[in-house]
Simulated assay, not measured.
Amino acid sequence: MDRIAILGCGGSGKTTVGRTLAAHLGAPLTHLDGLYYDGDWNTLPPAEFAARQEEIVAGPRWVVDGNYAASMPIRLARADTVVFLDIPPPVCLWGILRRRYAYRGGQHPDQGVYDRITWNFVRYVLGFRRSMRPRVRVMISEHAAHADVVVLTSRRAVRRWLLDLPKESS
């Protein structure tokens, strides 16, 4: 595992898994939310967002967490490992609430963005498995057939998988 793309619904644990993998592997970590948004929730133009991702995935080792379907093929094409956190919506909503409480709605020091919960976001989370999961699976099959794909469907499965990671040799 040298180039890892982490996908999943908001609140599924992408950031936590990304931090853990990056630390375990000694690889640089990129949170796509932190790349895409500034502190005031202004967004990068799509071409610049894609170009920045191209630069990141050109490197020999990286961990990138985030979905952004329009640019997902960029990451999937270079990833040797894809981790898809297919976590149930109620668990994701609980994760969002815990994150909101932990940061008090403020800026995430590790991502550079503020926590923002809107009704549209809640609807997105509730409908993720119905609307986005099929698209993610298609993109993985089309752009990451060469990669090892890990699908984790519960917090327990995530913890178990992280604990079972092979030790890196120096």
Rank of each mutant, 00 (worst) to 15 (best):
C92H: 01
A157C: 05
R135H: 14
I87K: 00
Q53M: 12
Y37T: 04
Q53I: 08
L93S: 03
S12G: 09
A5Y: 00
G34T: 05
N42A: 14
I74Y: 02
G18S: 03
G66L: 01
Q111L: 13
R159K: 13
E48R: 12
S141F: 07
G8D: 03
F128L: 07
V57S: 06
D115V: 08
I4V: 10
Q107D: 13
P45F: 12
T43S: 13
C9K: 00
R61A: 10
C9I: 02
T81M: 11
V138E: 15
A47P: 09
R3M: 06
A157Q: 02
V136N: 00
L97N: 10
H108K: 13
W119C: 08
R19W: 13
V125R: 03
R129C: 07
V151D: 03
N120G: 15
V122I: 15
L165P: 04
R19T: 12
S71V: 11
A70R: 11
M1Q: 08
A147S: 13
P46E: 13
H143Q: 12
A145D: 11
V158M: 04
K14I: 05
Q107P: 12
P88W: 05
Y124V: 03
L162S: 04
F121M: 15
G106N: 11
T81Q: 10
R133G: 08
D40I: 06
F84A: 04
G112T: 07
L35G: 00
F128C: 05
P90T: 08
